[in-house]
Structures are given as structure tokens and as C-alpha cells.
Amino acid sequence: MLSWRSGLSPVRIILIGVAINAVFTGLISALGSITGSKQSGVMAIVNANISMKTWDDVYNLLIYVLIGLTAAVLAAGKSNLLAMEDKTVRNLGVNVIALRLAVSCIAVLLVSISTAVAGTISFVGLIAPHIARIMVGSNHKVLIPFSILLGGFTVLFADTVGRAIAQPYEIPAAVVMAVIGGPFFIVLLRRSDKP
């Protein structure tokens, strides 16, 4: 039912299914956190827990994150070009494929190092940029730094909610993000005009 929008698209059905699966997996994991039981088969999206991280983890992140964030801020101006059609960007003398690869490599560096240290926290990369785009617009020179700050705030907020919602038990931030992010993702898919 959630996949229906002027017909059914196989891709939309799969993406809605992934989002619903993330929500219910997060709910199962949250109940497991509260009751103290361990569920077998719980997906990796909710296995991350940032509560046990130390300053050594921050130092491990520091060099890679500084390199990645510097590259992201430097690539912000060129990223604005990707909003235009490929033909237009090529006519401006920009190699579109090389630019996309460079931006993708920067994103992969940042995601991989943060995931390696903090674990997988789903939907942060989906929620933060969309909210940031609504708040500050589409200029990547402003959007990228704002998304960086908003992403950090989002994880901190999810961690705080996880600690406060079922005291004295703690629900990991990844679980909170899975439960919040799934419906957010479904709403984005429903609003999308693309099939």
C-alpha cells in the first residue's frame, strides 16, 4: 500500500520494504535492549552503540575526518554543478564523471571511517541532508557544512533519546535512528515524483 503511487514500481516496493524492515528491526532491538534479551538475526543496522566510545576512538577518526571534511568543503562549489544537466556541465568544461567519482570517493571515505569506529547508524545520511536542504537551501557551500553539524546533532539527539526514553535501560542510537529513519524514508519516497 505504501509503495503505490500512480502504479507500482519494483524499485519503490523494495525500498519501502527495506524501510519497513529497518523500523521493525529497530523496534525488536529496542525491546531487546529494555528486556536485556538478545535476538538472533537482528540486522547489523542496529548493532552500533556509541555509548562505549573513548577518546582513542576520536583520535582514530581525527586524521581521516579532517581530510574528508576539508575535501568535502573544497568540493562544495563544484557539487552545485551536479544539479544541472550533464550536457550543460560538460559545456562548461567540467568532466562530469570525474567530478561524480571525486564526490563519491569523499563520501565513501567519510562514511567508511565513521562506520568503522562508531558502527552502522542507519538513515543519518538521509535525514540530515534533507532537513538541511529545507532549512538552508541547495547551495552546497552552505549545505555541506550545515549537514555536517546537523548530522552530528542528529546522532547526539538519537543517543539522548535512547538514554532517556526507557530509563534505567539504554536504547542504542542506531536503534532510535532505525525507528525514526524508516518512516522518514517512506515519506521521502511517497513525495518523490520519480517512479
Rank of each mutant, 00 (worst) to 15 (best):
L150G: 05
A48T: 12
I50V: 15
I131N: 02
T160W: 13
I127Q: 03
A107F: 11
V142D: 03
T115A: 06
R100V: 02
L110R: 06
I106M: 01
N60M: 05
I113E: 10
L99G: 06
W55Q: 08
L69A: 13
G162P: 06
K141M: 10
A128H: 11
I144L: 15
L101E: 03
V73P: 02
Y64W: 14
S112K: 01
K141P: 00
A116E: 15
V73S: 00
L82M: 12
D159M: 07
H140V: 00
V124E: 13
M52T: 14
N49E: 03
N47A: 15
P145D: 07
L74D: 00
A76Q: 09
V89M: 01
L74F: 10
S112F: 08
A132I: 02
K53S: 08
V103G: 03
M43V: 09
V46C: 08
I113H: 10
N95K: 12
I134Q: 08
Q167N: 08
F157Q: 01
N60Q: 13
V94K: 05
M135G: 08
L149S: 04
V73N: 03
A71Q: 10
R163K: 15
V65A: 13
T54G: 05
E170A: 03
A164W: 06
F146W: 05
L61R: 07
M43P: 02
G41H: 01
S114D: 04
E85D: 15
V108F: 13
V89F: 06
A72E: 12
L143M: 11
L66W: 08
Y169H: 14
Y169Q: 09
A44Y: 07
S122K: 02
A71R: 06
I67G: 04
S112A: 10
A83W: 12
P168T: 07
H140M: 10
F157C: 06
S79G: 09
G152D: 13
C105G: 15
N95E: 14
S104M: 14
F146M: 04
L109F: 08
L99V: 05
A107G: 15
K87V: 12
F123V: 00
L143I: 01
V96M: 11
A116Y: 13
V42W: 04
G137C: 06
I165F: 11
M43S: 09
R100W: 06
K87F: 12
N80M: 01
W55V: 09
V155G: 05
L69W: 09
A118I: 03
T160G: 02
N95Q: 10
E85A: 11
V155L: 15
R133P: 02
L109S: 05
L74R: 10
D57S: 11
G93N: 08
V89A: 04
